[in-house]
Amino acid sequence: MSLAVNLLLLVFLLVMALAVLKTRHLFAMAMLFGLYSLLVAGLFVVLDAPDVAFTEAAVGTGISTVLMLVTLASTKSGHELVSSEKSRAAPLIICVVMGALLIYGTHDLAELGDASSAPHQEVAARYIEKGQEETGVPNLVTAVLASYRGFDTLGEVTVVLTAGIGVLMLLGNRKKLRVKELANGK
């Protein structure tokens, strides 16, 4: 059952991704992108990952889409230009080769949901077995996130801070720098 839902959502997802690729209207694209994120969030729920779903919904559908819309508004771009110069053959070949490689790799991947596959052994098994006992937190995602792999999360927060600092560096200046000034090197 859940597999069927999963596949259905995935097909939708693929369609949505293609729609993002195809649409020329950029505001429509932003909306489609938001929808894509929402679908991903839905998929995460199906995959027993509510924390991730929660985050994806808030970030993908929320923040990313809002930022995209703001960017569109600020750059006053409505439609994508159709550029004739950019070759599309090379990207296509690269993508097909990469995709083929990945599919080749997935050959040995355990089936979806196979409890005996490697990722569920050893490391993860111990989290489930002892996680609550060792950290006192029943939500294992929180336990792993905050304690076992707390250092990753510290890194994650630092990434957020870095992004904040980066954006401030780029856009913090209230004065807009004009085209010519920049072309001549400030």
Binding site: G155, E156, T158, V159, T162, G166, M169
Partner: peptide, 13 residues
């Protein structure tokens, strides 16, 4: 990977 991204994001900026 996490540290790679920290350094990369800082680098882009």
């Amino acid at each position: 990977f996490v540290f790679l991204e920290i350094s990369s994001l800082a680098t882009y900026a």
